[in-house]
């Protein structure tokens, strides 16, 4: 039935078994049986060439040189019904052949040889699979691939080494620069402290003297206080405050008597000078004949000087930014 589309032109066509090679043909499975069955009654001998044709066409890789005679001998189970061709026994289907080949097990030369080859195949398969899964991809890699991978690794190593050297250099630079920055910061801080003492923005303490000027009669003038400051500075005073007012470079004294002002801040007698400096220099500078103390006492004011190991000058001034004067260094 299924061979009808082809056979009507040539019923004896021995090429019919070629059909199994055509994967698209859905009727293929029936073809070998039916075609042979239909031919059997008419011409049992025709099956011989047809089978050999089938072997050539469908098993071209191996069976091309095989004659049908050897097939009959070598394939016992499937061949039996075929050899019993005169009886109208149906050609065994592939499925039946498979079952017949599998069970019952027969120890024949063919089975043993095939078993040996399949053993080798299984061995190779297992070795390959285990060696592929065991190890990294490198094991199965070819030589040129390995060389390429090695080259890539070398390149990568080189790149990473370069990067490492670069980063190390950068780190050294940063460390040294941070050292420098730290040093500069320290120096700046020291300078800030020194300048802060001069500018009156930080408190100061150290040995010095305390000069107390009493003014019971209101006779003390601002220039007398200024003279005292000048004298103290000449003797090396480093930080001065008068009644809570820090005396710095731009301090000024105005007024007199009961309206004495220093830097615009009113101060009342007695005027207490806290001076940091070398007491041995400061005290004689005030007490020299014709000096500050004598001048004040001549004006009916009182002046007492006492040395102290620790004078605290804690009156502060806000830091002032000059509006016009700019540093000409740099």
């Amino acid at each position: 039935m299924s061979e009808n589309p082809k056979n009507p032109e040539n019923p004896e066509n021995p090429k019919n078994p070629e059909n199994p090679e055509n994967p698209e043909n859905p009727e293929n499975p029936e073809n070998p049986e039916n075609s042979e069955n239909s031919e059997n009654p008419e011409n049992p001998d025709s099956r011989e060439p047809e089978s050999s044709e089938a072997s050539k066409s469908s098993e071209g890789a191996k069976a091309a040189s095989v004659t049908s005679g050897t097939q009959r001998e070598d394939v016992p189970a499937p061949a039996v019904p075929v050899v019993a061709g005169p009886a109208p026994a149906p050609e065994p289907s592939g499925r039946r052949r498979l079952v017949a080949a599998l069970w019952p097990p027969r120890v024949t030369r063919a089975q043993l040889i095939v078993a040996l080859l399949l053993f080798v195949l299984g061995l190779g398969l297992a070795i390959q699979v285990s060696s592929t899964s065991d190890n990294s991809a490198l094991r199965g890699a070819r030589q040129e691939d390995l060389v390429r991978i090695l080259d890539e690794l070398d390149d990568r190593t080189q790149r990473l080494e370069d990067e490492k050297a670069r980063l190390e250099k950068q780190r050294t630079e940063l460390e040294s620069s941070s050292d420098q920055a730290e040093e500069a910061r320290k120096q700046t801080q020291e300078k800030e402290q020194q300048l802060g003492i001069l500018a009156g923005t930080v408190a100061a303490e150290g040995p010095g003297i305390t000069l107390t000027v009493g003014d019971p009669t209101g006779a003390v003038e601002s220039d007398m206080l200024l003279d005292a400051i000048q004298e103290l500075r000449a003797a090396g005073a480093e930080a001065i405050q008068v009644n809570g007012v820090r005396v710095v470079a731009d301090s000024y004294f105005t007024g007199s008597g009961n309206d004495m002002r220093i830097d615009g801040t009113k101060v009342a007698p007695p005027y207490v000078f806290k001076v940091i400096g070398k007491p041995e220099d400061l005290e004689p500078a005030l007490n020299i004949p014709g000096g500050v103390v004598q001048t004040l006492e001549k004006e009916q004011a009182t002046a007492t000087v006492e040395r102290s190991a620790k004078i605290v000058v804690d009156a502060l001034r806000p830091a002032k930014r000059p509006d016009y004067a700019q540093s000409s260094s740099q």
């Binding site: 089978s51 089938a54 890789a61 191996k62 069976a63 097939q71 070598d74 499937p78 065994p92 052949r97």
Partner: peptide, 28 residues
Amino acid sequence: VVAALDAVFGGLRAMLDGIFVDKVFVVS
């Protein structure tokens, strides 16, 4: 291994076709 697999499949098909020959299988 792949080539042997091909031979095995060819042999299996030949067996199902009823044209299996052990000599051919070995040689192939």
